[in-house]
Design a protein around this nucleic acid. Sequence first.
DNA 1: AGTCCTTTGAAGTAC
DNA 2: GTACTTCAAAGGACT
Length: 368
Amino acid sequence: MKAMAKDKGRETLTMDLLAEVELFEKATVQGEDPLQLMLEALLDETNEPAPVPNVEFDSNSPDLLQDIVKDLSGETEGPVPAVEFDANIPDSFPTMMLEAMLGDTDDRLPVSEDDWDAITPDSLLEKLEALLTETTDQILSIDGFCDPSRTDSLQEILEVLLGETAEPIPVAQEPQFDPHSFPSPPTLSTVLAGPVFDTQPQLCKNVPLVPYTQFAQENLVAIGMFNGEVVYALPPQAFSPSFFPTAPPLNTSTSRKRRMSNQKDESGQSYIKKPPNAFMVYRQEQRCKVITELNVRDCAVVNKELGKRWTNLPMQEKVKYYEEADRQRLCHEQLYPKWSPSDNYGKKQKRIRRKGPKPMTVCTAPPL
DNA sequence: AGTCCTTTGAAGTAC
DNA sequence: GTACTTCAAAGGACT
């Protein structure tokens, strides 16, 4: 919840780096809290210019916090001054959020987590409750972005503030994505050490293939922060064949598998797939090429050939696939921090593994 | 409808 | 630490 709000903030509130540095320098020289400085400008009901007057909210992208600030701080016209939600400042987001909510109070909100107990004015509670009521959809939709490693979650704040009420706090079971609410991802040259896939456009099943890099660049969404940087990932829909713009219609076999994948387990949780390893990434890219070259569609044959090619592939060429697999694994971890590969154990039908010329193994008991 | 085939690698389990 | 197991993907073939 918090994280997406932050990322939404990063989209619409991003402050020019130079301006941010200037503001912090100014605050340092004056012995003031830069955060407070920004907030004062943000919530200032006078007509004094904001610290970064040139940066404005994206009017095409309705923003939850903008609405809240406009509503609560009394601003009814003009853009809300831009302020960076710096994820590296642990308390900045909730503090800003709460100060924005409090609007015209004179109380300086505590920025320390230890001081949360001090901020329980009835008005804030009312506003939070109103927020929860009025924006349930948004809260639900962004809840999945909570970073469990961080302690400044708005969810936690709400739990603290609403702790004594009987109102449950909406919690999304899985993240929902609105790719349009995020900033465009950086060009891949800034994300990747080099072009990961250099495949030329080709046909597969008479459908032109989009290079994976192009596809990824067009569909990446911000999912959170990692080491202080925005992490981008393909949205969950990207793992659905229908998401691929060039994806051909599925045959019955794949549809069956897909249906199985989309099934929910006993607890109603959606099936979360493992991220691909380096070979799977390589296979994904090279499969159609091999099918065309060998004029064979049998996956077993194709995979055998791909296995040979992978084995013979120089390490310097393999590196990019390992890196891509690493990236997808990290994104997967961000998306599903509580997921473990063992969660999928037993979800597929068990079968006896027959590898190579080895005789069939007789399983006398299922694995524990 | 469900499973097998076939590959590599990651991650889990068992001992 | 080592060996083994499972599952990621794919689609034709088979039960």
